[in-house]
Nucleic acid binder design. Structure first.
Length: 316
DNA sequence: AAAGGGCTCAACCGCTTACCG
DNA sequence: CCGGTAAGCGGTTGAGCCCTT
């Protein structure tokens, strides 16, 4: 039957940190062929890496447009809130912060935010802690999010912090340079110079890269969100259904879960997107500030939809 | 200046899901 | 429908860096 075994179990497969040379080989290959078909990457490039390793290196590190380090308070707020809503669905959370990788968000949560939230959720003297209903979780998250980000509930355009929408103007070269943080700069110094130059040449779309874009399937990423935005109808209908059910907190969460389930099967992303957007708006914005929150969310998401934040639609 | 303890984050591991023949 | 592989995802690890003493 079908395909030969994956190289993952192969002998002589190199592990450990990637060298700049390997990075360049991988980037050059993806430049020509686009991401995807990872199994063929080690075969065609001669890299002694398994396909998984190549995919991870690309998605977590080399993919253009990735923003590294320095999470803004607003990003923290979004992560805290979404983590409370979705749990440890890092890929789903990352789809709302397309410049961040799921790995990055996961690391940041485990090393910073988890402690922060725990600290903030410690029962305060004179304050009763509610039972563990979803509403309480969400409101605790909102509290933590608000604490993490003073600007979380306000229009980000007035925020002094770096917000999603303010990042799209970053040149790709700067984004790539940012892909090499100081701690690894020494090791990857050569790559940090050469790879951005390679990417510069990509900025002119070619037929092959456009074709790659069409087949690119970064699941749950901004590209998908763009398609769902444009595809609209299903999402609108689903949002309307959800909106009708808003009377019950549990039904909302069930709907979220159902939508999430649907999304992972590739059919209900629009549902999740619209629903979560509504959910976040309802939950995050106090009465009277919903308009501002709406503007903030819409601003961010529309720009995501426009492909500013996710590199894949830009580059391929 | 050196030691060591804590922290960060890139990468790996293993499981699940989607897809193909 | 079934078996097998590729791809995706979340949890975990460990090397290297940083800070404190």
């Amino acid at each position: 039957m079908g395909r030969p075994p994956c190289c993952d179990n192969g002998v002589g497969v190199k592990k450990g940190p990637w060298t700049p040379e390997e990075d360049i080989v991988l980037v050059s290959y993806i430049q020509q062929h686009g991401p995807g078909n990872w199994r063929s990457v080690p075969e065609n490039t001669g890299l002694m890496r398994c396909s998984k390793s190549c995919r991870l290196r690309w998605t977590n590190y080399l993919r253009p447009g990735i923003k590294r380090g320095n999470f803004t308070p607003h990003e923290e707020g979004i992560i805290i809130h979404l983590q409370a809503l979705l749990g440890n669905k890092w890929a789903a959370i990352a789809s709302y912060l397309p410049q961040r990788t799921d790995n990055d968000i996961k690391n940041y949560w485990n090393t910073h935010l988890k402690k922060k939230v725990k600290r903030l959720q410690q029962p305060q003297p004179g304050h009763h802690q509610h039972s563990s209903s979803q509403t309480t979780i969400a409101s605790n998250a909102a509290t933590a999010a608000a604490a993490a980000s003073p600007n979380y509930y306000s229009n980000p355009s007035s925020s002094s912090s770096t917000h999603l929408h303010s990042n799209h103007i970053e040149p790709m070269q700067a984004a790539m340079a940012a892909s090499y943080p100081n701690t690894t700069a020494a090791r990857n110094d050569a790559t940090s110079i050469i790879v951005p130059k390679l990417f510069q040449t990509w900025m002119k779309p070619s037929p092959s890269t456009s074709a790659a874009a069409a087949s690119c399937s970064y699941k749950g990423g901004a590209m998908a969100m763009q398609e769902f935005r444009e595809d609209g109808q299903e999402g609108v209908a689903a949002a309307a259904v959800i909106s009708d059910n808003k009377s019950s907190s549990s039904s909302e969460m069930a709907a979220v879960a159902a939508a999430e389930e649907g999304r992972s099967s590739g059919s209900g992303a629009a549902t999740t997107f619209s629903l979560l957007e509504n959910w976040l708006l309802d939950d995050m914005a106090p009465p009277g500030q919903q308009a501002a929150a709406m503007e903030a969310m819409d601003y961010g998401f529309l720009e995501i939809s426009a492909g500013y934040c996710c590199a894949d639609p830009i580059m391929f």
